[in-house]
Design a protein around this nucleic acid. Sequence first.
DNA 1: ATCCATACTTACCTGAAGGAGAGTGTGCGA
DNA 2: TCGCACACTCTCCTTCAGGTAAGTATGGAT
Lengths: 140, 140
Amino acid sequence: MTETPAIDSLFAATCVHPSPEDPAVEALVTAIIAQVADKWTLLVLEELTEGGVLRFGEIGRRVEGISQKMLTKTLRDMERIGLVSRTVHPVVPPHVDYALTNLGRSLGAAFCGVWTWAAENRERIEAAKAAFEERENARR
Amino acid sequence: MTETPAIDSLFAATCVHPSPEDPAVEALVTAIIAQVADKWTLLVLEELTEGGVLRFGEIGRRVEGISQKMLTKTLRDMERIGLVSRTVHPVVPPHVDYALTNLGRSLGAAFCGVWTWAAENRERIEAAKAAFEERENARR
DNA sequence: ATCCATACTTACCTGAAGGAGAGTGTGCGA
DNA sequence: TCGCACACTCTCCTTCAGGTAAGTATGGAT
């Protein structure tokens, strides 16, 4: 399992998360995380972080595999909680711009840690998976 | 919308995420995040962070609302990618201990940023939601 | 007159997630 | 001898996320 202690120094911050506050707040925070830690939300967040102001169609083309329906829903949900701003230009072929708000940008920054974690530990995870399979096969 | 600039100073780190590397790695990282950013995984991670070594039943009692089936699956998946270790004591009423590995702890630390973000911006999000509703109602 | 571009909305449909609840092995206490 | 404790495992069944496809409004280009 090679529990390399080096990893601990990289992520020394023991935050055990801040709030023993009250359970209602905890539930809300959990709900927020659940909404925010969604595949499409993450991908759209990334594209808007990189691309700045983008139109509906542009995002759709950048986020591979997303359907119009999900793009609409994702964008609407992100707008609802204040992650993106939506600007409608009332011209004839509709023109709508999307951009991150400060809140959205701060979420991107917060998720950066997870992103980095995933990138840095990818090989470790692959190894763990392989080891797990091996143990399973050995067991039967 | 009150785009308070204060928030920017709190999350100044502009990480735009590290890897333009290659798309295969990117896909893997996305997959890892998708697996890891799961409701039950997050909750179990939290309990194990707080509780240290826990038994199956203990976790089940702590994570409110989880079914045995999902607890088994979540734990197994976390074990697969090396986040938790599983120790079986071959005694007669089965006794199995679960604990975070170093990798699991580091994930907790990485997610701490998101957790903090959610806690700190809860009110802002509530406000955004309310404002969104209002705009919607006004629109019709 | 027709068709296209754009950003949706709506209806329909399918596979997959996940809950409820019963079944399993086994040694020990009543 | 019965039933319980614990950690699953299996089956059945419902819900729902999400894909496909078609519809909408409208001015300008062909």
